[in-house]
Design a protein around this nucleic acid. Structure first.
Length: 765
DNA sequence: GTGGACAACTA
DNA sequence: TAGTTGTC
């Protein structure tokens, strides 16, 4: 089965004519048996071209892997069909004695994408290593970080007086270098950078936020200094890629011919998409999180760079190098899964990082079909009707709560019950899923046997990458644009999952356990008394429950939590044995809340879990006071919202009455500044009554005047009490009133946290 | 170039 | 009621 996943290294004799759009067609031809077996493994395909696409091919790896060999690849792209057919005739005439030529046309089919064609990968990676058979460390990576000087708050490459002062460079072979602006002009610095990149010839250039800061800055300054930033493998300059969206040109990235660019910021965002643990995506924060911070780390905030440059440049140099080293370490932790995925998928490294999971799955499926010369289906129209089962049975605070979940519920169901798209006539879907599952287990095994923390987290990343891929098989079924979609099968998966979870609840309850909350594939419960708090005994209990499930559906015991606070479906908090607290759910922890509210709620949750009722009272009082007396930090009161729409579009929708006015947009417009989609606006509410309309009574935090505070005290006090109501369910009414009052000298010894049973009939059918 | 449903909450 | 944030 691996053969299908690593298909592009195994394909034999495929020739395809591929239509990319109305006017562009490509022909792929493979040379016949002129390549040694071990070479074929690496690069089995050849392009025919008169455009010399091949010039930029990575000679280093090519030569390294294929030393002494003598054969050719060509690429070919045509602007129209006549040219294409002429070319085919030409090829047949001149090459048919040497090559196996078969031309297969997909031109008249409904296929829009044939991305999985292995040769497509080849073209995309022109000049770049395919990574096949390589380890991550085999690839040569350079990290780049620039420091800039500005008298303003934000450095701007368009401002002629701003400039690059340091370029720090490191690589994965222990080299480090500073291009020092003390000794050189900016122009000289840029020329040196080009020389170094060309001489070192990295496969990958890495940086944190390199796509939105370092590279655009370098490109702009090179322009101003009239330096040719020719760092591509063919001597070309970086290319800024754009797309037109809503009749507006949108920046999508930067390409350097023959090299990959890795922006660790994007990798961090992807990582957090799964883990959701980061407070910030800054290099400093994330490095601390991963424990990869350099020794004697120097921290220099952005606005202090100019000061350091004038007063203590040596520290700045050290700081800049540390940035580059941390970027390298960060990349070593986060890049490998995508590196190894690139070996499986017919996408370039960058596409693997940027593309969604569905296109990855589909590329594997289509490639297998292409290989077998089987026709390819069209997407079905329709929709999915069911999802996971979620329920809550108790609210309140509970002691010794066990957690168990079914490992990879949906993939297991698909494998166990053989649920796959009906359209998948070749049965590739399940074979692929099984194979990937096996690979994930291998990665997990390696993680378990890892001897260093670095190795461990690397394999953790690898296995979680596989997990994302495996989990998206289910999502793929219900995806409207997937060519193999199958809504019926998607529903079958979810309803089977519901049945299994309900059975689990039933089994636990029947044995005297108390289920508190369940969601999709996991369950929090209090084990029957006889198992008490003994972890080993509970393990046995879970094993017993697990034995009632179908074979292939594995229930895992994840341990016992000291306390659990259950609030609503998908909203709860956990206190583990080490005293760590985990809060889940949008109503208890949300980026949309004002920071003061976030902190207030999480503190209250902490006190509830530790049964420190008096501290809740004290917190409420002090917070109330600091708002009432205008002592609280304005940032604590301010909301931060993302502008999701373009401002003119917002205005248009408001004008048409299709959208309500919103504070963030109104402020963005009023500011007169050029806010763009995705920008964040931080604002607070003004006025004097608690029920003001926010879009009419708001102000940017930046415009806040500490000497004339104008935040709406009544509004925020009302908000405080509003948030407080979330805790109503945990107390008797009189206790609630007492705790959230401003009186002094109260006693809370007799306050009991209330637990409630939510009566509920489960439909077990 | 593009996974999904379900839940809580806000304006 | 639509949009956002979150869980799985």
């Amino acid at each position: 089965m691996d053969e299908l996943i690593y298909g592009h290294n195994q394909e034999k004799n495929i020739v395809a004519v591929q239509q990319f759009d109305e006017s562009t067609v490509r022909i792929y031809i493979r040379e016949k048996d002129t390549v040694r077996e071990e070479i074929r493994k690496f690069y089995p395909f050849f392009f025919l071209s008169d455009k010399s696409y091949i010039e930029g091919f990575n000679k280093k790896f090519w030569l390294k892997k294929l030393a002494g060999n003598n054969f050719y690849q060509y690429a070919c792209a045509f602007e129209d069909l006549t040219d294409m057919w002429n070319a085919i005739r030409y090829i047949l005439r001149n090459y048919s004695n040497k090559h196996m030529i078969k031309v297969e046309s997909y031109i008249d089919t409904d296929i829009i994408y044939l991305r999985p064609d292995p040769v497509h990968q080849f073209l995309l990676q022109t000049g770049i290593t395919l990574f096949k058979g390589m380890e991550f460390n085999d690839v040569y990576r350079i990290q780049l970080d620039i420091e800039t000087y500005s008298k303003h708050r934000f450095s701007n490459p368009e401002r002629i007086e701003d400039r690059i002062i340091l370029i720090s460079l490191t690589d994965n072979r222990g080299w480090e270098y500073i291009i020092d602006g003390r000794k050189k002009s900016e122009r000289q610095m840029l020329i040196e950078l080009v020389e170094i990149i060309r001489k070192k010839d990295p496969d990958i250039i890495e940086g944190h936020n390199i796509l939105n800061f370092d590279l655009p800055y370098l490109i702009k300054r090179a322009e101003l200094n009239e330096v040719d930033l020719s760092i591509g493998r063919d001597g070309s300059k970086p290319k800024i890629t754009t797309t037109t969206y809503d009749r507006e040109t949108v920046f999508t990235g930067i390409e350097i011919y023959g090299r990959h660019i890795i922006d660790t910021l994007i990798l961090v965002q992807l990582y957090d998409f799964v883990k959701r643990e980061f407070e910030s995506y800054s290099l400093k924060y994330v490095s601390k999180y991963f424990g990869i911070t350099s020794e004697d780390r120097i921290y220099i905030p952005g606005e202090k760079i100019a000061w350091y440059w004038d007063n203590d440049p040596d520290s700045l140099v050290k700081y800049a190098l540390q940035d580059a080293h941390e970027t390298r370490k960060l990349s070593e932790l986060l890049t490998p899964p995508y590196f190894y995925l690139t070996q499986m998928l017919p996408f370039s490294f960058w596409q693997v990082i940027k593309s969604g999971s569905s296109s990855k799955i589909e590329s594997l499926l289509v490639r297998a079909y292409l290989k077998r010369r089987h026709s390819i289906p069209k997407p079905d129209t329709g929709f999915q009707t069911t999802g996971g089962y979620t329920d809550i049975f108790y609210t309140g605070v509970f002691e010794n709560v066990a957690h168990a979940d079914i490992e990879s519920l949906y993939p297991s169901i698909m494998i166990k019950f053989k649920i796959a798209p009906q359209k998948d006539e070749l049965g590739i879907f399940l074979q692929m899923l099984e194979s990937l599952t096996k690979m994930r287990l291998e990665a997990k095994h390696k993680m378990k046997n890892a001897t260093t923390p670095e190795e461990k987290s690397k394999y953790d990343a690898v296995q979680s990458a596989f997990k994302i891929l495996i989990n998206s098989f289910y999502g793929y079924l219900g995806y409207s644009r997937a060519i193999f979609n199958d809504y019926e099968s998607a529903d079958k998966v979810t309803t089977t999952g519901q049945k299994i979870l309900k059975k689990l609840i039933l089994e636990i309850t029947n044995r005297g356990g108390k289920v508190i909350e369940a969601d999709t594939d996991g369950i929090y419960f209090i084990p029957p008394e006889e198992f008490s708090t003994d972890e080993e005994k509970v393990k046995e209990f879970v094993k017993d429950i697990a034995s009632t499930l179908p074979e292939g559906i594995n229930l895992a015991f994840n341990g016992i939590y000291k306390k659990m606070l259950s609030y609503k479906k998908k909203n709860y908090a956990l206190l583990d044995k080490n005293g760590n607290i985990e809060i889940k759910g949008a109503s208890l922890i949300s980026r949309g809340m004002e920071p003061f509210a976030r902190k207030y709620i999480s503190e209250c949750v902490k006190f509830l879990l530790n049964n420190e009722i008096e501290k809740i009272h004290e917190l409420y009082k002090s917070l109330f006071k600091s708002i009432a007396e205008r002592k609280i930090d304005i940032y604590e009161l301010a909301k931060t919202e993302t502008l999701r729409e373009r401002l003119d579009r917002y205005q248009e929708l408001v004008r048409l009455g299709k959208r309500n006015r919103s504070a963030a947009y109104e402020l963005a417009i009023a500011s007169g500044r050029n806010y763009r989609q995705g920008d964040k606006i931080t604002y607070y509410i003004t006025g004097s009554s608690p029920d003001v309309r926010s879009f009419e009574n708001c102000k940017l935090v930046d415009d806040w005047n500490p000497l004339r505070r104008d935040e709406n005290v009544q509004y925020y006090l009302f908000k405080l009490n509003d948030y407080t109501r979330r805790f109503e369910v945990f107390f008797k009414p009189e206790d609630f009133k007492k705790i959230f009052s401003l009186k002094d000298g109260l006693n809370f010894d007799d306050v009991q946290i209330v637990t409630r049973k939510i009566s509920r009939e489960i439909d077990f059918d």
